[in-house]
Design a protein around this nucleic acid. Structure first.
Length: 456
RNA sequence: GUGGUUGUAGCUCAGUUGGUUAGAGCGCUGGUUUGUGGUACCAGAUGUCGUGGGUUCGAGUCCCAUCUUCCACCCCA
């Protein structure tokens, strides 16, 4: 194994079993998307750089995979730029395309580009790979799949309500019980920032607040202070840190903080609407939880923010996220088109299902019957039977070589093929087939007709 | 992008202060059983010790670089 080949960091190969498990998740999500009225689209793996750059903040730009131009790309770089060694200067000159970083921004581009052909409100789903030049960790890859569903062209909060139901429906179908759908609202965060006099530091404020769970109250306050949020403002936040209880209690607490903020109160109103609707409709296995510290995600969200966490005890980042963005298409020249959407993290859901052993064991859709190869003559008879079985939709195969039976049986075992058929001299003479069930060892002598109906 | 961690047979790992031919379990191949597998018993093969340099009489073991893995930041699915 001198020069063992390898694949780039953060990428993976998938074997047959893994592919089957991934399709199981994808098919489940797809079925629910369709039940909720979403239509599939696909977009290219790579986009023009200007479509993607600047949409995810400075941090995001750094994580976008850029594609080197073809040909004599260095000719376009002036000596001045070349000598500057500044990537900000040079990158746009040598790279005009980039791999997509998520599915939402390409979707926004799609909506604007095809706006005259689209019927609004437009409900689309999209299941494709995205790429990030991130440093890999568990559940964190450089190539991974997102499963997105979005609606554009409707401001109705009923969409948010339906997305909560959709999350619940998918995770319930996957038998992943105990997920928590956390919800927050950007307007509330804006309201709080307004009240404490930090409107211009909304991002810093939310990033710090988001860490409350992780690093605790004191460190969050320290970070806010560090970022230039006024001391007396942080004092006003005190009730926020002690928010407890159910949805209603937390909302009451928020109201006391936000009573002077119009936008904040609007956010609360939206949250209450969603909560009330969901309470009436009921959820099957997930629970909806207000989490005012929830602030992660792209900063293009303007209303509801969602994040789904795995059941307690599973160490995994969020397995889904989403929210409302009122202005995403305006960056591509189409204002006043409100959108809201959610995303499922396929690869993380996979890891969670694996850890909790929730994949059905019938998932490996393997061959049902293997014909043992005794020789040329026998093989021809077998091939005839195999053809007939396949015509009936039964997965059948003939072992290609006339080798020791032990080897052929072992092959059936390793491939987890439940039945084998033996056709030797005796069967050849009597025009019959010996069907053996591998698990029980039980054998039956059958005609071709009976063999087909037995395996059907 | 910052700091740390990991890499030995197909897999999981052991390998003593640097010292001769690098080990175990599982798996694999063959046999006991040339028309019956999963159990048992017997026999066998595995490797440029992640890669490239360096120190040394001598390196799996020490040093440097690089790639990979995982972790904490950052950010996020």
């Amino acid at each position: 194994m001198a020069q063992k080949p390898s694949i780039p960091k953060g990428t993976r190969d998938f074997n047959a079993e893994q592919v089957a498990k991934r399709s199981y998740i994808m098919d489940t999500i797809k079925r629910q998307f369709q039940l909720y009225g979403f239509q599939p689209i696909e977009t290219p793996s790579f986009e023009n750089s200007e479509t993607l750059m600047g949409k995810y903040g400075e941090e995001g730009d750094r994580l976008i995979f850029k594609i080197l131009n073809s040909g004599e790309y260095l000719n376009k770089v002036s000596d001045n730029d070349y000598n500057s060694k500044s990537e900000v200067q040079i990158t746009p000159k040598i790279s005009e395309k980039a791999l997509r970083y998520d599915l939402t921004v390409p979707f926004a581009r799609y909506v604007v580009q095809h706006q005259n052909d689209i019927v609004f409100p437009f409900k689309r789903y999209q299941i494709q790979a995205v790429w990030r030049a991130d440093r890999p960790q568990k559940g964190r890859f450089r190539e991974f799949y997102q499963c997105d569903a979005d609606v554009v062209g409707s401001k109705s909060l009923l969409q948010e309500v339906e997305f909560v139901q959709l999350y619940d429906a998918v995770f319930t179908t996957l038998k992943l019980n105990g997920t928590t759908i956390k919800i927050n609202n950007r307007k509330i965060l804006s309201g709080i920032a307004e009240v404490i006099g930090a409107q211009d530091k909304l991002i810093d404020f939310t990033v710090a607040l988001d860490k409350l769970d992780k690093i605790g109250e004191e460190k969050v306050k320290a970070e806010m202070l560090n970022k230039g949020i006024p001391d007396d403002g942080i004092t006003k936040l005190q009730p926020l840190f002690s928010l407890k209880g159910d949805f209603g209690d937390q909302v009451d607490g928020l109201k006391s903080i936000l009573n002077t903020s119009e936008i904040g109160l609007k956010g609360i109103e939206e949250l209450e609407f969603i909560d009330t609707a969901i309470s009436n409709l009921g959820l099957k296995s997930a629970k909806l939880q207000l989490d005012v510290t929830l602030a992660r995600g792209l900063n293009y969200y303007t209303g509801a923010i969602f994040e789904v966490s795995a059941p307690e005890g599973v160490k995994m980042g969020s397995i889904g996220g989403g929210g409302r963005y009122d202005d995403l298409t305006s960056i591509f020249g189409k204002p006043d088109t409100s959108g809201v959407g959610i995303s499922f993290g396929l690869d993380r859901i996979y890891l969670v299902l694996e850890e909790l052993k929730l994949f059905p064991n019938t998932i490996a859709d393997a061959t049902k019957v293997l014909f043992i190869n005794f020789g040329e003559k026998e093989a021809m008879v077998c091939l005839n039977a195999v053809t007939k079985l396949r015509a009936e939709g039964i997965k059948a195969e003939l072992y290609p070589d006339t080798v020791k039976m032990k080897k052929q049986m072992t092959y059936a075992n390793r491939r987890q093929i439940p039945y084998v058929v033996l056709v030797g001299e005796q069967e050849l003479e009597s025009k019959t087939f010996t069907l053996k069930q591998m698990e029980t060892g039980e054998q039956k002598l059958l005609t071709l007709q009976d063999l087909v109906s037995e395996l059907y």
